[in-house]
């Protein structure tokens, strides 16, 4: 008799993912789904999807879902969590959504110390709209709105979101992880799980920043894109725990 050694998490729905081949959104969804199932939180979770590549994330998780306007997912999360404090609320946002148009909403959800979890996928580009420059685009990186490469003199240096939010007094847990290989995915899952545990324990605002890939937007093969995370993104976006005031999870 054969034995099941691996199966799709029941935290994911039957809907086919809309992501491009080689993009790490799918695998990040898996980490979240597995974490929610393992912590027995899935049935009382609500995911808030952003505008961007993951706009349809509400369809991919096997729980209630809300689609938010561009950048406003943390405010939607606040309204939802304040009226449903016993539920698990998380936003899933990209760098255009969270680090550009949604800066006020993310900063003030953090500032209020709202007991929510933010999964921030940083792939240094606007993926869905066709590969435009993001606040997190690296210097010299070519995008459709920085065709000669990002120029520091004109557009500044890439925004460091984990560093920024860790400076906000009311945040509880901020960690940056990566998604380009198995050891880093294992670490990423531990971080995601800890963030949800903290929320379930009422410990306040947590964000996990996950360095992701965009092979299409970066004009790379999926393998090269994994290498780009390791060799080019990680030196500028150092991995690690930026803040952890949650105590024992």
């Amino acid at each position: 008799m054969s034995k099941i050694v691996y199966e799709k998490s029941r935290g994911l729905s039957e809907t086919q993912l809309s992501y491009c081949p080689g993009c790490t959104h799918g695998i990040i969804h898996k980490l979240i789904a597995e974490s929610l199932v393992e912590l027995d939180l899935l049935e009382r979770t609500i995911v808030i999807s952003p505008v961007g590549c993951s706009v349809m994330a509400y369809d991919f998780f096997n729980c209630d879902g809300i689609q938010a306007s561009h950048g406003r997912a943390p405010a939607v999360a606040t309204g939802l969590k304040r009226t449903n404090p016993d539920k698990i609320v998380f936003t899933y946002q990209g760098d255009g959504d969270l680090a550009a148009i949604g800066t006020a909403e993310i900063v003030h959800a953090a500032h209020r110390g709202d007991n929510i979890t933010v999964i921030f996928v940083n792939n240094a580009i606007y993926g869905m709209t066709g590969g435009q420059m993001a606040p997190t685009t690296l210097i010299d990186m070519k995008t459709s709105t920085s065709p000669l490469g990002r120029v520091e003199a004109l557009t500044g240096k890439p925004l460091l979101v984990s560093e920024l939010l860790s400076q906000i007094p009311s945040t509880t847990y901020i960690e940056r992880v990566a998604s380009h290989d198995v050891p880093h995915l294992n670490k990423a899952k531990r971080a995601v799980k800890k963030a949800f545990q903290y929320q379930a324990q009422g410990k306040g605002f947590s964000m996990v920043e996950i360095l992701g890939t965009c092979p299409i937007g970066w004009n790379m093969t999926p393998t090269d894109a994994m290498g780009f995370v390791k060799d080019t993104m990680m030196p500028y976006f150092p991995l690690g725990v930026y803040k952890d005031e949650g105590g024992e999870a």
């Binding site: 809300i66 405010a75 939607v76 304040r82």
Partner: peptide, 10 residues
């Protein structure tokens, strides 16, 4: 903008 989106969530 934050306030109306909190309304949306609630």
């Amino acid at each position: 903008i934050g306030a109306i989106n909190m309304c949306y969530g609630a």
